[in-house]
Design a protein around this nucleic acid. Sequence first.
DNA 1: AGCTCATGGCGAG
DNA 2: TCGCCCTGAGCTG
Length: 271
Amino acid sequence: MPEGHTIHRLAAEYHRVFGGQAVAVSSPQGPFADAAARLDGRVLAETDAKGKHLFLGFDGVDSGRWVHIHLGLYGKVFWGHGPAPEPVGQVRMRIATDDAYCDLRGPTKCLLVDAGEKQEVEARLGPDPLRPQDTGDAAWKRISGSRTTIAALLMDQKVLCSVGNVYRAEVLFRQGVNPYRAGRSLDRAEWDAIWADLRPLMREGVRVGRIDTVRPEHTPEAMGRPPRQDDHGGEVYVYRRAGQSCLVCGTEVRTEEHAARNLFWCPRCQA
DNA sequence: AGCTCATGGCGAG
DNA sequence: TCGCCCTGAGCTG
C-alpha cells in the first residue's frame, strides 16, 4: 500500500475532504487520545507530504499543530461518507465532519509535532521525486560515492525518499539497470534517467492511486500475450513476478532477498 | 483457527 | 543483520 505516491495522494485527499473545516478528531485507540482531544473541533488548515511522511496542520493549537503520520508497512486510511459509524476494531485517529469521516489504522507513527520538528523530519530525508522543487542532485552526491548497491540506495530514504520496494524494482527494470551494481558504478546520465523516470511515473501513481509501470508497447495485449493479473492492483514488469516471463524478453524474472527486502529483476533486460 | 507474508523503519549489537 | 512494531489478506487445514 504505502509508498510515497500513497502518502502524497492522502495529503491531497485530506485537504480536499476536510481542508478549511472544523473537524471532530478522536482516537478510540489509546496512544493518540490526548492529542486528539487537543485537536478536536479545530480547523484542518493544511496538509503536507514528504516521502512517506504525512503532515496534517491544524489552526488554533498552541504548540505542535502538526500531526505527523507514518503508515509503515501496515498502516491504512479508510474513507467514508456521511456520519461516522461506531469504530470497529483499532482506530488510531478518526477525523470526521457531518458529511465524511476517515479512520487511520495501524500506523507506525501518529503524533503531534511543532513546525521545527516537522522541519527536522524533512531534513533527514533525501529529495522527493514527487516534490517539483526537489532535484536529484543531493541523491547523486550520495550514490556516486557509494559502494552500496543501487537497489539498497534507492530504498534508503536519506538518499532519496518516496521510493519503496515496488518503484525500486520497476524503475531499475525500466532503465535497464542491474540492481546489484554499486552506486558509484553508475554514471551521471544513468542516474539522471532514473530520477527523470521516477517523477512522472510516481506522479501518475498519485493520480490513479496505484502503481502502473508498464509502457503501452509492452502491455500483454500489445505483445499478443494473455493478460496478467497483479494482486496489488497495478500493472508492473517485475515486482512479485518471480518465475514469470519478462514482458519484454521472455526470460524468467528472478527474485532474491537483499538487505531484508525482496528484490525482483530480469537478468537479461538488466544484465 | 492458525500460519505466512507484505508497497516500512527503528534500535540494539 | 536481526528482532520487533503491528494490521490485513491470502493461504492451509
